[in-house]
Simulated scan of single mutants.
Amino acid sequence: MSNLTFDEGNERVNVRCAGIIRHENHLLVVREDDDDFVCLPGGRVQRGESSLDAIHREMDEELNAQIETPQLRYMLENFFWRYGKRFHEFAFYYEVAKPLHVPFQPGVCITGEDDGKVLSFEWVHTAPDALAEINLHPFSMRTRVAELPQGFVHECVVDPDY
């Protein structure tokens, strides 16, 4: 299958899902080896795949984790610039329980690989100043991960430099 990503000139439409994995006032984030930012674990939804199926597949691929009952908390339409492209991203953020085999420790707790890139996972504190220090993308998640809504929230978020 192919990803739900469509490019036209310097514009990209992207459909993504990610897991919000919290434990003891910390959040699991991932950094690709060549990025200067971190994001929540996950990836692109593929053609013919639901976001729910995608979060299960992505957690298996990235964390070798079979997750149970992920809860959709946010569907964000994000508008931002990255890699010289103007993004319009549809992102599904699921609350996911901490996988038992992912250690809760300082620094990089687990590594993996995705499309030839090294992935480093680490726990960061959910305090706003801590999230700002680690450069969490998209920026809109910095204020949304510490306290999750009880239900589902849909929002449109436009980065200031879009």
Score class of each variant (00 low, 15 high):
G42R: 05
S50I: 07
E113D: 09
D161Q: 05
L63K: 12
R82M: 03
N135A: 10
E24C: 07
V108L: 08
C39R: 10
E89D: 08
M59A: 14
K98G: 02
V108I: 14
H101N: 10
E89G: 06
G48M: 11
G84K: 05
C17N: 09
D114A: 13
V38W: 01
A18T: 06
W81N: 15
Q150I: 03
Y94E: 02
D36C: 11
L27I: 09
F152R: 05
T143G: 10
A97F: 08
L72C: 04
T126G: 00
I20C: 03
W123P: 00
K98Q: 15
F87Q: 01
D53T: 06
P103D: 04
Y74A: 10
K117H: 12
D35I: 00
L63P: 08
V157Y: 05
G107K: 12
L148K: 02
P106M: 01
R73G: 04
G151W: 02
R82T: 00
W123T: 08
L76Y: 12
E8P: 00
I55N: 07
P103H: 03
E8V: 11
R144V: 01
N10L: 15
S50W: 11
L136C: 02
A18H: 08
V96F: 07
F90A: 04
T143A: 03
V158R: 13
V145S: 02
F104P: 03
S2F: 09
L52Q: 14
L148I: 07
M141Y: 00
T5A: 13
F37A: 11
R12V: 12
H154C: 05
L27Q: 07
R57A: 07
Q150H: 03
E95C: 10
G42W: 13
V30R: 02
V118Y: 00
T111F: 05
N3L: 13
A146L: 06
L100F: 14
K98A: 14
F152I: 02
T111Y: 03
Q105L: 06
D33W: 06
A97G: 04
P41Y: 05
H125W: 02
I134K: 00
T69N: 13
I21A: 01
P41E: 04
E155I: 03
V15C: 13
V13S: 05
G42E: 06
F90Q: 10
F80T: 09
L100H: 14
T69I: 07
R82N: 13
S140C: 07
